[in-house]
Design a protein around this nucleic acid. Structure first.
Lengths: 106, 106
DNA sequence: ACGATATGCAAGCGATTGCTTGCGTGTCAA
DNA sequence: TTGACACGCAAGCAATCGCTTGCATATCGT
């Protein structure tokens, strides 16, 4: 689970996920080209490849080999527990504005 | 928005959010003590203070001053757009298993 | 077989991160 | 006022990160 947050910490990796959301199943070169075109990100092939390795280690990207091509698919499953961890249990608590909240002294 | 992911990338900061979820509105020393007790995290006061600064910059923690005490409150609002970014738009797409999916050649 | 294509592996480098150390500031009780 | 308490600021350091560079492997078309 820690890998998921570390993977999402980099803006280039988040843009890669955006790209795979827009068009799933791209190859490495395809991702490089579209990152340069649509997102003005001129990172090298090796840089993107390493980013994809990080995303794959975090299970956020799954891959499928076919000959010399390697297709990359986004996988949003690791994101679901991220939400449940803090979003759900904290919702029915006290008001979100600290100026109006009150607690006993420590 | 980048600050949110960077803030969540550290395991100690995630544990701090867990602690604030369990008991909202704690002071710095209170957080230090409970991290040591319940989570076996023996970080120094300054280390935790810097972590809280990061969380506050990311708007994940709001603070309220009262005399020499500073109370910390979790704020889950920055987490909501995180979900919508990839979870929602990618759901009605093709099968998540890359072995069965298919795309045209690049 | 040969070259072109698509990707993998690994060492090295500057920048950033998380933490420590030491001192400073403001607040409260006696 | 004095001392204890809660917290802030900033320099320094080892570890990690993102990226480059260079070479290697594997697959396809001709």
């Amino acid at each position: 689970m820690a890998d998921v947050f570390k993977a999402l910490a980099d803006p280039t990796r988040r843009t890669i996920l955006d790209e795979l959301t827009d068009r799933n199943g791209q190859t490495l070169f395809e991702i490089c080209a579209r990152l340069s075109m649509k997102h003005n990100l001129n990172s090298s092939r090796q840089a993107i490849s390493q980013h994809l390795d990080v995303l794959e280690s975090a299970q956020l990207v799954q891959t499928r080999r076919e000959g010399r091509y390697k297709y990359h698919y986004i996988n949003t499953k690791p994101l679901e527990p991220v939400i449940e961890r803090w979003l759900r249990p904290a919702e029915p608590e006290e008001p979100s504005d600290p100026a109006t909240a009150r607690e006993e002294e420590p």
